[in-house]
């Protein structure tokens, strides 16, 4: 047995759910492997204390009033203005446009599962990117033109990568590496927008 396969069995061994034959094989490996002895001991000694950790903990203060306030704010005219800005940006943002098209075109079953995989990954990022783009638009005149050029050039590179990752995931919706690649594209896009927004506020 390799360390890798031994490690995969440690949790069920500690939980007592491992079949006798596998348990024996694991014990044999652990008897001659110092590394796996450490891992088995660590898993065994932590299992109890971890189970005893409280599932819920109350925040030090009541957060609801603050949350409630932000809910109301989201639904007042400010939101409408943001939505209007979003509509404007949609026209400019190929990523978003492509996503919306996905939603409309997902008619056949296979496409639907590909599109569903894409949606699972992209949920949240698109809205976030729109909000950031709106914020960036507001701070645009505070950024040097060269900076705007740099940001836009990099956003283009990322947008192209996102489009390609999305197409690949649609073809192979169960592929975890493709899900991670697509998610990374969105993370990078949002990170870059955040960096740009920060610059527009700080410099």
């Amino acid at each position: 047995m390799t360390c890798e396969s031994a490690r995969n069995l440690i949790d069920s061994y500690v939980a007592g759910t491992l079949a006798a034959r596998d348990a024996l094989a694991l014990e044999e490996h652990v008897a001659v492997c110092a590394e796996c002895t450490i891992d088995l001991a660590a898993a065994g000694s932590l299992a109890g204390p971890v189970r005893a950790l409280p599932r819920r903990m109350d925040p030090p203060g009541d957060l609801w009033p603050a949350v409630r306030q932000r809910l109301v704010r989201k639904r007042t005219p400010g939101w409408g203005a943001l939505a209007a800005a979003a509509v404007l940006l949609i026209a400019l943002t190929s990523v978003v446009t492509a996503l919306l098209l996905d939603r409309r075109d997902a008619t056949t079953a296979s496409l639907a599962s590909g599109a569903a995989a894409v949606r699972m990954v992209e949920a949240g990022y698109v809205e976030q990117a729109l909000e950031l783009e709106a914020a960036l638009e507001q701070g645009r005149e505070r950024l040097a033109p060269e900076t705007i050029t740099i940001v836009e050039r990099n956003l283009d590179v990322i947008a192209k990568a996102i489009a390609e990752s999305r197409a690949a995931l649609e073809q192979d919706p169960a592929n975890q590496d493709l899900r991670i690649l697509l998610r990374t594209g969105h993370e990078q896009r949002v990170a870059l927008l955040e960096q740009a927004v920060r610059l527009s506020r700080e410099l």
Binding site: P54, R55, R56, M57, D58, P59, P60, G61, L63, W64, A66, V67, R70, L71, K74, G124
Partner: peptide, 29 residues
């Protein structure tokens, strides 16, 4: 749900003040 969400945020963030902000963000989202 706030008790469980706060516990999750606190353990992931490792910082109580940050966890409060994150808990708020979670419910707003």
């Amino acid at each position: 749900h706030v008790g469980r969400i706060f516990a999750l945020c606190l353990r992931l963030a490792g910082d109580s003040r940050r966890a409060e902000e994150l808990t708020q963000d979670v419910f707003v989202r």
